[in-house]
Computed example of a mutant assay.
Amino acid sequence: MRTHLRLPAAAVSAVLALATLTACGGDSSAVGSGGKVKIMVGGLDKVIYLPAMLTQKLGYFTDEGLDVQLLTEPAGVQATTSLVSGDVHGVVGFYDHTLDLQVKGKHVQSVVQFSHASGEVEVVSNKAAAEITSAKDFKGKKLGVTGLGSSTDFLTKYLAVKNGVRTDEFSTVAVGAGQTFISALQQNSIQGGMTTDPTVAQILDKKLGKVLIDMRTPEGSKAALGGPYPSSSLYMNTDWVNKNKETVQKLANAFVKTLKWMSTHSPEEIAAKMPTDYAQGGDGLYAKAIESTLPMFTTDGVMPADGPETVERVLRAFNPNLKGAKVDLSKTFTTEFVDKAK
């Protein structure tokens, strides 16, 4: 009997990403022939970044005459590194990196804002649930994040500081997402951590932990962070955007069309369009994960009012790079392209 080894879609994408970057690193100064664009995603199988793959599956990139290659990295901070180094044209990741990069002298802007909530969830293991009942209990604990310097790292530190716990009084541990996060929770390498769906849905389904802070809705983000929190977006180097406006407009057209499609279709219909390997816990659980996360998405790609101010306030609470530094929020995003797409 022959056995066929089937790699998960995210793993295959990671291999393809490595091969592509090795072959053509630093070649993102212009769009290739036929409108080829390389976009790095901070985890293609994460529901918070679902519009990237969904746009490809719906054929909207092709409709715009674009040949888009979607690559994947397990954490947004690594995806950002690929953009800064010139390996890709854009990143689907968290908007907050645009502020962090600006104070480091790198000018990057969000051109399509996918969300108006963070989409993140702080979970705690069943073993630690009795001693971690709020962010005030983070002191002395090991908390999982996708990567050090990632948006989950930023938000975890903010929640701690907001609740009277200094960043040196607990540890953040880079455990990625999916199975690596779940294994760390099971082995007590972390007592809790910040992650997204479908990882959250799998943890709850396996009864390995519980939700402590839910930021998948605008209301949940406002309660935890004090306002709308624009997170997943398409961001690109500002100079590149200015030199390639026609291509950026086509990308905006495709993504806005996807966001509108998502707002008029059920979680089950959305799940059916995605690669089957993304449904690690089964089709039903994957659809449930999408349903829980859908409220975070915008329908038009526009930056939410007061969103950038919320992100700046959150980052300034703990990020030494921003303390005393001036940030020009108007240069961290643009609505030029999504306004035309509408």
Rank of each mutant, 00 (worst) to 15 (best):
E268A: 15
G301C: 14
T264K: 14
K250W: 07
L294H: 02
Q280F: 11
T299Y: 06
P308A: 10
V302L: 14
P275V: 06
A271R: 00
P295F: 12
K245N: 05
L259T: 00
G301I: 09
E309F: 09
D239S: 14
L234S: 08
K273V: 03
K243N: 11
T247Y: 11
D283V: 03
D277A: 15
D283M: 10
T258I: 03
V248M: 04
T264S: 13
T258G: 05
L251P: 02
E309G: 07
P295H: 06
Y286V: 04
I290G: 00
N253T: 12
L285G: 06
N253A: 09
G301M: 15
P295A: 07
A289Q: 06
G307N: 11
A305R: 12
Q249W: 04
V256L: 13
T264P: 01
M303R: 00
D239Y: 14
I290S: 03
A271Q: 01
P308W: 08
P304Q: 10
N253M: 03
W240R: 04
S263P: 11
M274K: 02
N253S: 12
F255L: 15
N244W: 07
A271H: 01
K257P: 02
A271D: 08
V241R: 01
T276W: 10
A287D: 04
V302W: 01
Y286D: 01
L294E: 02
A254L: 04
E268W: 14
L285N: 09
M262E: 03
G282K: 04
T298E: 04
D277N: 12
M296W: 08
K260C: 05
K243F: 07
D277P: 02
G301D: 12
E246Y: 04
Y278S: 03
W240M: 09
N253D: 11
T258P: 02
Y278K: 05
Y278V: 05
S263C: 07
K288G: 03
E268T: 14
G284E: 13
N242G: 10
K250I: 12
T293V: 04
E291T: 02
T299F: 06
I270Q: 01
K245P: 01
T299C: 09
T247H: 10
N242W: 07
N237K: 13
Q280V: 10
T299N: 11
L234E: 01
D300M: 08
E268Q: 14
G282W: 09
V241E: 11
L285W: 12
W261R: 04
K243C: 06
G307F: 06
T238L: 08
G284A: 06
G282H: 14
L294R: 07
D239H: 14
K257Y: 02
W261C: 03
